[in-house]
């Protein structure tokens, strides 16, 4: 008991609040996973291997940025998979693989993602319909539109490649760092700044803690909600562009893994799922931990079903751990 108090005093002295502590735990978990990987599969924690894992994690992390925004106000975005997939296909079909059309294609794709999120936000904020249902329906709508308009990926332009500029941009490196990773670091900086140091960020936390009180305090809750869902759609579309730049071509179903992974990253990152608590910095660590864990399992030749099961078990364990911390304090 005395030890615990001493520990608590120490915690207070170095100024770690519970929320900060959670983020630190998640980074420690990421390091542990890399260490475990090195033991199971020597060479796992080499620099180039780490860079490859971080690049893959950046895709999850970017989707999870949008997911973090909506989870912070107690929402959820289940429309991520097909907004992402539609974005990837829209990029190749609108650019036709030509560099000259790349800027136009990227802009129209990002606008499409933001628009899908905007519609989600408007229905959720102004009609009071649960986010789960609206975004689930939006996922179906985007899936049907993508399949229908592309004729099940049989259209002539569907086989186009991403413009070489986009491919080079994703594959390239700057100062020895992969570009995707640098983009992610920039996004981390911007999102952290927005969440921690702007009124918009403060409003987001306020709404997540108590929407009614925020409304009474003069916050335009509906407008913020709409913006946050639009941002989630924007980030899903951005990830779609990066993925198609990374792989060269778009395919059906490429967005499917990102729903589970983005939510998992948010949960592992210690963002409170009822909103109002947590930070994108935690989510980023969550994304790295998750992707590193998957890589370890791949290195161990774990079959698909085993990965599915371990995914689920890891999330349950983390949920239980965080729940327990909640009760103690």
């Amino acid at each position: 008991m005395a030890g615990k108090t001493a520990l608590a005093q120490f915690r207070d002295r170095i100024g770690l609040t519970r929320d900060v502590r959670r983020i630190v735990y998640v980074y420690l978990a990421a390091v542990l996973v890399f260490a475990a990987g090195e033991i199971v599969h020597p060479g796992f924690a080499r620099l180039d291997s780490i860079a490859a894992i971080l690049t893959v994690a950046s895709f999850v992390g970017l989707v999870a940025a949008g997911q973090t925004f909506v989870v912070l106000i107690g929402g959820i975005d289940l429309s991520v998979p097909w907004v992402l997939n539609a974005a990837a296909i829209l990029l190749v079909t609108s650019s036709l693989g030509e560099d000259g059309r790349a800027v136009y294609a990227v802009l129209i794709t990002l606008a499409m993602g933001a628009a899908a999120g905007l519609v989600n936000g408007v229905i959720i904020a102004y009609l009071g319909v649960p986010a789960v249902v609206v975004t689930l329906a939006m996922n179906g709508i985007m899936e049907g539109l993508t399949l229908g308009l592309s004729g099940g990926m049989t259209c002539d332009s569907c086989a186009s490649y991403a413009p070489p500029v986009v491919q080079d941009a994703v594959h390239g490196s700057l100062f020895g760092f992969p570009t995707a990773l640098i983009l992610w670091i920039v996004v981390i900086a911007i999102v952290s700044f927005v969440l921690s140091l702007t009124t918009f960020g403060r409003k987001t936390y306020a709404i997540g803690n108590n929407a009614k009180a925020s409304y009474l305090a003069g916050i335009n809750v509906r407008l913020s909600t709409v913006l946050l869902y639009a941002l989630s759609g924007f980030f899903a579309a951005l990830t779609g562009i990066l993925l198609v730049g990374f792989g060269g071509q778009a395919s059906l179903g490429m967005g499917d893994p990102y729903l589970f992974q983005s939510i998992a990253a948010v949960v592992i990152g210690g963002v409170y799922v009822l909103g109002g608590r947590g930070h994108y910095l935690g989510t980023t660590a969550g994304a790295v931990t998750l992707v590193a864990l998957v890589s370890v399992l791949l290195a161990m030749n774990m079959p698909d079903y085993g990965r599915n099961i371990i995914y689920g078990v890891v999330i349950l364990i983390l949920l239980l751990l965080y729940g327990r911390e909640e009760k103690q304090e």
């Binding site: 939510i263 990965r307 599915n308 995914y311």
Partner: peptide, 27 residues
């Protein structure tokens, strides 16, 4: 049990168990 005794969010619990049950089915 996870939702009621673990006091966890139904959506997250069932998202996790969905992954587990799907894995078992493929097994």
């Amino acid at each position: 049990l996870l939702v009621a005794i673990g006091r966890l969010q139904p959506i997250l619990v069932t998202l996790a168990t969905l992954s587990i049950y799907q894995g078992l089915a493929i097994r």
